[in-house]
Design a binder for these strands. Structure first.
Length: 311
DNA sequence: AATGAACGCAACCGCAGTATT
DNA sequence: CAATACTGCGGTTGCGTTCAT
């Protein structure tokens, strides 16, 4: 006896969503929250499967979804993350605010896979770090701040760096910041990094783990708060928060600022001007009121303000 | 201009993991 | 502890659009 189907397939509509259905779903979720997806279609008056509603909301209707083409920086980040994580689309999506796993998967399959195959092999993606547990799957070795893991200090290898990466090599390890003197770190210093602090301050550090070899790469990615906040956080991390004794401490702060800003730019972390994202001048609640007043036949597709809920 | 191929994207499906009863 | 329900993920499909011939 198998599991009961999630919905009666004879009773639910399939295929492309209409604007009227979008309206019903958006209005319902924005006023009531989604709660139980399975019961949502009935409560919202939709003849759709709950899974279908969830997918439509997450991938298309949610105000968190960022529209528009992927920037070159986003493309590069996806390529780098895919090298480390494989087809873990949701994990990759977690590093690209506003992008969904489905969207990233599509971009990879239609564009980036070919793009990557035409590029020369990069040292930053073909190198590796050796771990204590040799049985661990390569992709599972990705260190994730949320999981509170730390680097193993036994890495070996070269010192190549790419623009978006800070490389950790050898033991004692060396952090190579583009344009700066190498930063020596003992493995225990790396292990002492306060991952909670980074996580609490929305600074994500990912270790990009290629196949067998010696080198690892740490990509610095953050969520978009204000650029100033990011600068101060990144600075505190790299130049003294953990009392790392290295040449960078004596460097001119201007150079550090320049590098941090450069990194922020490369990673697309510049502060977002909300007024440019959401052109509609009225507040989200007002927009919702206006939308819910509309009759289905009144919907003007060209003016449908689906993405204007600028919370 | 017609048509078939390639592309891009939204949506569906089945499975696995987790929560609840 | 087992059965069931629910959610989320990744693979795949189908369809509309664009491009090449």
């Amino acid at each position: 006896m198998g599991r009961a189907p999630c919905c009666d397939k004879n009773q639910v509509k399939k295929g492309t969503w209409t604007h009227a259905e979008d309206l019903k779903l958006s209005s319902f979720v924005l006023t009531h929250g989604h709660g139980n997806w399975r019961s949502l279609p009935r409560r919202a008056g939709l003849q759709r499967c709950g899974k279908s509603c969830r997918l439509r909301w997450i991938n298309y209707l949610s105000p968190d979804v960022k529209r528009g083409n992927f920037s070159p920086e986003e493309d590069q980040l996806i390529i780098n993350l895919h090298s480390a994580l494989g087809n873990k689309w949701s994990k990759i999506a977690a590093h690209l605010p506003g992008r969904t796993d489905n969207e990233i998967k599509n971009v990879w399959n239609t564009r980036l896979k070919k793009k990557k195959s035409t590029l020369p092999t990069s040292p930053s993606t073909d190198s590796c770090i050796s771990y204590a547990d040799p049985n661990m799957d390569e992709h599972d070795k990705v260190r994730d701040v949320e999981q509170n893991k730390t680097l193993d200090g036994s890495s070996k290898g070269g010192q190549e760096s790419s623009d978006n990466y800070v490389n950790v090599v050898d033991s004692p390890s060396t952090i190579i910041i583009p344009g700066e003197q190498p930063l020596e770190m003992e493995s225990n210093e790396i292990d002492s990094i306060n991952w909670d602090f980074l996580s609490n301050n929305n600074i994500n550090i990912n270790v990009d783990l290629p196949p067998a070899g010696g080198e690892s790469n740490i990509a610095v990615a953050t969520r978009p708060q204000s650029l100033d906040d990011q600068v101060s956080q990144l600075k505190s991390f790299f130049v003294g928060e953990y009392d790392i004794d290295h040449q960078l401490k004596q460097q001119d702060n201007v150079a550090i600022d320049d590098w941090v800003k450069y990194m922020a730019h490369e990673l697309g972390l510049e502060e977002v001007d909300q007024s440019q994202l959401y052109n509609n001048s009225c507040k989200p609640e007002q927009q919702l009121d206006e939308i819910t007043k509309l009759k289905e036949e009144d919907i003007d597709v060209t003016n449908f303000p689906m993405w204007d809920f600028g919370f």
